[in-house]
Design a protein around this nucleic acid. Structure first.
Length: 409
DNA sequence: GCTTGTTTAAGTAGCC
DNA sequence: GGCTACTTAAACAAGC
């Protein structure tokens, strides 16, 4: 991910290379939009990562992920009473039960504390100098996709919805769309952690839904969405997938022995495309290639009649169904349960509320702070705007994160 | 024709 | 330096 920051440096030197890191500390100040001494939250995080949100919890709402992103664009309003209370349930326990810090804590993310937590070098602090409204977010595409899917009530989005989520949240991605959207598509196809869920025949539309593999929950250890510590891979030969970060695992060993820097989804990656290779790949990734009626990733027929599951307009009503489907898909694919996160399949567990975790990104300072809109927050705002026509969801995460008063420490 | 999805390749950067 | 994660580009196919 960080490489991306650098690669984009030509266009956005603010985030590039050393300048990016060099100024990360600047954000430490940036995020303290909430009351209280700025350093408190950061130092608190540093000393007790797990309590990153503790200092803010009382002031926050439950995670608003239940307000579906698509609703924003569709202009669908949801009564706050109906939507918000149920929001928590749409997230894994760690994300729904923990009241995360507000976006302001993105500042913390950019702080040296973040750097240490995520293995990013920290540099000498520099004073905050400028707005980063269109700077490239420090998230990988995989992270962005993951977050987008996570925030959706149904835990699945179409490609276009993912695009929308990203562009809504990160103004940076409103430019050069062809470039990053290609990367998004590549990431979706390339990474085992994303599974394609076909549309129902009676719900035609473009593209399939994309969901997270049930066992991919710990891709981002510690909830840090900056860079995965281990790629989520299937276990070759069995069709199983393997949770990331398992030392000595088959996948790890295979990966280590695989040719090339990229040998993602299957062993076919190291061999030229062929029908055999594709067949092998299909074993690993049923969603790849031609339709496979018995494909485990394709939601089993028992759930097929739950049409809202695949309805673009209704899927946010049935998050559990999706998880059931995903769990069924996982079971059908003989997926290994994650030994480290042996929970209900849909209960992605993050070991703690990392500042760069979705917990934080998806927290909703929008209402409290007037909007730091991620789509989620934006959705909240949208919901809010249903009551208050004056309000709108034109917020982005930079607004709350980067365009903040300077704090010199 | 455009979008979506797959695949390959090349390159950068971080970690051990 | 090797491995891995990630980004970007590009070609191609299929579906709408």
């Amino acid at each position: 991910m960080l490489s991306a920051v650098k690669m984009e440096g030509h266009e956005h030197p603010d985030w590039s290379g050393s300048s990016y890191y060099g100024e990360t500390e600047c954000y430490a100040a940036a995020g303290h939009m909430n009351s209280g001494p700025p350093m408190n939250s950061m130092s608190s995080y540093m000393n007790a990562p797990g309590m990153s949100g503790a200092g803010h919890m009382s002031a926050h709402y439950a995670n608003p992920v239940g307000v579906n992103h698509s609703m924003m664009h569709a202009g669908v309003s949801q009564s706050p009473g109906a939507g918000i209370p149920g929001l928590g349930g749409a997230l894994p326990p760690s994300m729904s039960s923990i009241s995360p810090p507000p976006y302001g804590n993105m500042a913390n993310m950019m702080s040296p504390a973040y750097g240490q937590a995520c293995g990013v070098r920290s540099r000498e602090p520099k004073p905050y100098r400028r707005s980063y409204t269109h700077a490239k977010p420090p998230y990988s595409y995989i992270s962005l996709i993951t977050m987008a899917i996570q925030q959706s009530g149904s835990k699945m989005l179409t490609l276009n919805e993912i695009y929308q989520w990203i562009t809504d949240l990160f103004p940076f991605y409103r430019q050069n769309q062809q470039r990053w959207q290609n990367s998004i598509r590549h990431s979706l196809s390339f990474n085992d952690c994303f599974v394609k869920v076909p549309r129902m025949p009676d719900k035609p539309g473009k593209g399939s839904f994309w969901a997270l593999h049930p066992d991919s929950g710990n891709m981002f250890e510690n909830g840090c969405y900056l860079r995965r510590q281990k790629r989520f891979r299937k276990v070759p030969g069995t069709g199983d997938k393997e949770a990331p970060g398992k030392p000595g695992s088959e996948a790890a060993s295979v990966a280590a022995g695989s040719a090339g820097s990229d040998s993602p989804r299957s062993s076919s990656a190291s061999s030229p495309p062929s029908s055999d290779a594709k067949a092998t790949a299909a074993d690993f990734k049923p969603s790849r290639g031609e339709p496979l009626p018995s494909s485990p990733v394709r939601v089993p027929s028992p759930l097929a009649h739950t049409q809202p599951l695949f309805s673009h307009h209704h899927h946010h009503h049935h998050p559990l169904l999706l998880h059931e489907a995903a769990a069924a898909a996982a079971a059908a694919t003989h997926l290994k349960p994650d030994p480290y996160h042996h929970q209900h399949p849909h209960q992605h567990h993050y070991s703690f509320n990392h500042p760069f975790s979705i917990n934080n990104l998806m927290s909703e300072p929008a209402v409290q702070y007037g909007g730091y809109g991620c789509p989620v927050s934006g959705a909240l705002v949208a919901a809010k705007s249903a009551l208050d026509p004056g309000a709108h969801a034109d917020n982005n995460y930079y607004r709350g994160v980067y365009a903040r008063p300077i704090m010199n420490s």
